[in-house]
Amino acid sequence: MGGSDYEFWVSVRRSVAYALLVTGGSLVLGMGVALLLHKTIRGRAAVTLIVIMPLAISHAIGGLMWKLMYNVEFGILNYVLESVFGLKVNWLSDATALYAVAVVGIWMAAPFVALFFLAGLQSLPRAPFEAARVEGASAWQLFRHLTLPMLRPVILVVTLFTIIDALRSFGAIYLLTEGGPGVATLVLPLYMYRVGFGYSSVLGKGAAIAFVLILLTMALAAVLVRLSRRPREA
């Protein structure tokens, strides 16, 4: 029992780390993309379409494509690295696997964030921005004191769903590493799968892990929901 308890706590930590990396990375990158696209008028539809593509692909197929690109011997990433710097990286090794998997998670989640932030930016009223610009506000001040507060409801909802989906994500990680090497990328859904459906299947314990996962998600969701409701109630 002691050994598997160790695995359980490792997987809790992996899940939290993975969710933080993916949510943080996607929010920053997604906001950057949304601002870029908002400023671009010409060719916006085409660029939007390219940015949406990672969303449009199923996690399973997307995960496999990254596995192909990460391949040590015939992956395109190592090919480029080797021809430019003369080195090869084992991307899915113990030390880097979690980050490599998180990059794929960001690749899949950031377009969702960008799409929703862009929609939010597009429906903001223009008058306050023009007024502030007349007063001599800088671009950063506009962003910090007008854009961010006005987008607050959308930002919180997007954060909520990004975290929920990061904590639930299974398909891409399963196809990339199956939770390995060892326990390097063993997030809770994969641990649940190993315990519940692996070769020594313990369905009851798998269900218990699922329940822990739900509690963890609910706690995070509760914090975000409270944040999002507060200003309206006041």
């Binding site: 870029l36 390219i50 593509m53 990672p54 997307g62 395109i76 690749w107 950031a110």
Partner: peptide, 11 residues
């Protein structure tokens, strides 16, 4: 942005 999001699809 286009490279990061588009390249895996191109590949």
């Amino acid at each position: 942005v286009l490279l990061f999001f588009g390249f895996p699809i191109l590949w």
